[in-house]
Simulated assay, not measured.
Amino acid sequence: MTKKYDEIFSRLVKSKQIHESVLLIQNTNGDFSYKNEYGGKSIDAPLLLASITKLFTTTCILILREQGKLSLDDKVMRFFDEGKLSGLHLYKRQEYTSKLTIANLLFQTSGLPDVSEEGKKNLRKLVLKEDMNITIDELITLTKELKPHFAPNTLNRSHYADINFDILGQIIECITGSSLEDVFKSFIFEPLGLEKTYLPIGEDDFIPKIYYKNNALSRPSYIKSCRASGGAISTPREMMVFIKAFFGGGLFNKGIFHQLDKYKKLQITFYPIQYGGGYMRIPLGGLSMLFMGKGELIGHSGSTGAFAFYYPEKDLFFVGDVNQSANPATAIRLAIRLAVSS
């Protein structure tokens, strides 16, 4: 099996767009472990988690739920000053903002647009040109300028949008009365002994460069703006500890997964990814995957090429980074190939 992993990783790093990459594979108890490194990127090197950060935000929401401090059915407006979110979800001349729930945000079923990828003020394109800071209030304003895709809870509809998790981050801070970085630390990093995982806030906090094709970009201000939706830093070794705890019940009662595994397809640009309650699912069998494999991958990937997935069929965890934001699908394809070859 390790020989197949070697071959897959070797083919990956032959691409001219891959300048550095790292891969770590383990089973639950750790008696099987495989690693491969390229371009100076080791399993202890810092990497930008991008949207894998959403798993941290999901964890905090689930812990607060266990503590009885929120329900997934709670209305989002409960946690905000009146007027701040007014007009956020105006669909076909009807206001749905007051109907949005925490579950709508967690499951990406709010219908809200994604300012990172949509509209003339598409943040992804703007950030490629220059670094920028953007506040949650500015994100909300930009979202209000775009049209939602559907009413909340529309049957079989989901639409991936960072704003869903940006708002969840605000709810976490509202409930706890603490900063998101402190909540991440007390709920996740300290209990798991993660010493190199953090949410950057100061000038001294290291933020890795991101490759876009052949250009290594430094975007510290923007990364610090992403926070709950994509701003965390970790290492592959520590992400392995976290992803095992996330799916293994080390942070919250894993019995909640029977409520979270209600998957819906995302917009076509995310195919074949589906979304559940705070995490992704990639089916490996059926016509859509040309009957390539069995089971599913569950976890999350990031737009910069980071990934952290669990493959229950073989009890394997895949963690790594290809660091190429020009083609985020590279990480997904790598994870699929690893699972199918296992």
Score class of each variant (00 low, 15 high):
F184W: 02
G193Q: 03
P328E: 01
L155M: 07
T330E: 02
Y212S: 15
F56N: 12
D321T: 06
Y271Q: 03
I256V: 15
L85S: 09
T154R: 10
F252M: 09
G83Q: 05
E195F: 03
G255I: 00
L217N: 09
R333M: 08
G299P: 04
K16A: 14
I163L: 02
Y34C: 05
T197Q: 03
G193T: 12
Q94K: 15
K41H: 07
I136Q: 04
I18Y: 02
I332V: 14
Q274E: 15
P46W: 00
L199W: 00
T53Y: 01
I102A: 10
A45Y: 01
G230E: 00
G320Q: 02
I210F: 00
T2V: 07
D73N: 15
T57K: 13
G286V: 06
R337E: 14
T269N: 08
G230N: 05
G249I: 05
E296C: 09
I268R: 11
N122C: 12
Q259C: 09
F184Q: 06
L155Y: 08
F32W: 10
L284R: 01
F247C: 05
S178Y: 01
L266G: 11
Y160C: 09
E203T: 13
S110M: 05
M1T: 14
Q170R: 14
S15Y: 01
T97H: 08
Y96T: 11
L88E: 02
K294R: 12
K294L: 13
T154V: 04
T330N: 08
T135W: 00
L199F: 00
I201D: 01
Y311R: 10
I210D: 02
F165I: 11
I282T: 11
L284W: 01
F252I: 10
E138T: 14
K41G: 03
A232F: 00
A216C: 03
P152E: 01
D166C: 12
I25A: 06
Y91Q: 07
S225W: 01
I282C: 12
S42G: 10
